[in-house]
Structure formats: C-alpha cells, structure tokens
Design a protein around this nucleic acid. Structure first.
Length: 117
DNA sequence: CCTATGACCATAG
DNA sequence: CCTATGGCCATAG
C-alpha cells in the first residue's frame, strides 16, 4: 500500500506533539497516529526530514530506550588544533540533555521519560 | 514477482 | 544485561 501525504502528516503531527522533556518510541508514534505496525516506517520518515526541520525528532527512541539514529551516534572528532570536525556529532544527546534527560551509552530511561498521554 | 534493506518490535534463552 | 530469531512493512532494484 502506497503511503499518502496524509499518512505522513499524521505521523509528523504526533511527533510534533511530544512534550518537551518527554520521549516516545517509534512503535508508540505509529500506533498513536493510527498506523500500528509501522514503526520501521516512522524511522524512515524521520531519516528523510530536512536538516532545518523544527520537528522534535530527538525525542524519538526505540522500544528499549536506545538512540538508534546513526547521525546522533557519530563520535566527536577533533583536528590537530582541538576543534570539532563534525558539528553534527551527538546532536540528539545534547538536545535531550537540554530538556533534562540523561543519556548513558546511547540509552535513556523510558520508565522515567516516556510520554504517556 | 523476488530479494534486500532499514532511525523497529516482541519473545525466548 | 546480551544475542538470536521471526515478524513486521514500505521502498528500491
């Protein structure tokens, strides 16, 4: 079944409504958008977001509370002068930290932070 | 049509 | 905690 723009919009809407300081899982978002079983598709949709998006994609993790966004897992690299070579390193972890969510080894506590409407 | 590939998930050991 | 397994489902070739 081809996926319409409407279905994409319903996913985006749910992601946009995750409160600050809370997180949601891929499967949770799919279900809340009325599309249970499409967790993988949620991940792909987020991977296609423009870099300048205002959508809080950093509040989405997998069912184990782990960050699986490869861009967020890039290690910080520095040149000989000590300057960061890769500005995109650890974006997701940094944004979550700003919202008061601790991440250790790419893992956070769903028990404490999962969004439960 | 078939296979391969994911920012996934639940379960079993 | 970890790995392995089978299922999931849209897309790409």
């Amino acid at each position: 079944m081809a996926l319409s723009l409407d279905l994409k919009r319903s996913i985006w809407q749910v992601v946009a409504s995750i409160p600050v300081g809370r997180v949601a899982t891929y499967g949770q978002i799919a279900s809340m958008a009325g599309q249970p079983g499409r967790a993988r598709w949620v991940g792909r949709l987020l991977s296609e977001l423009p870099q300048a998006t205002t959508l809080p994609w950093h509040r989405v993790v997998n069912a184990s509370g782990q960050i699986t966004n490869p861009h967020a897992l890039i290690q910080i690299q520095r040149n000989a002068s000590g300057q960061i070579t890769n500005p995109h390193a650890l974006i997701q972890i940094q944004r979550l930290a700003l919202e008061g969510i601790k991440v250790n080894n790419a893992r956070l506590s769903l028990k404490q932070h999962q969004w439960q409407p």
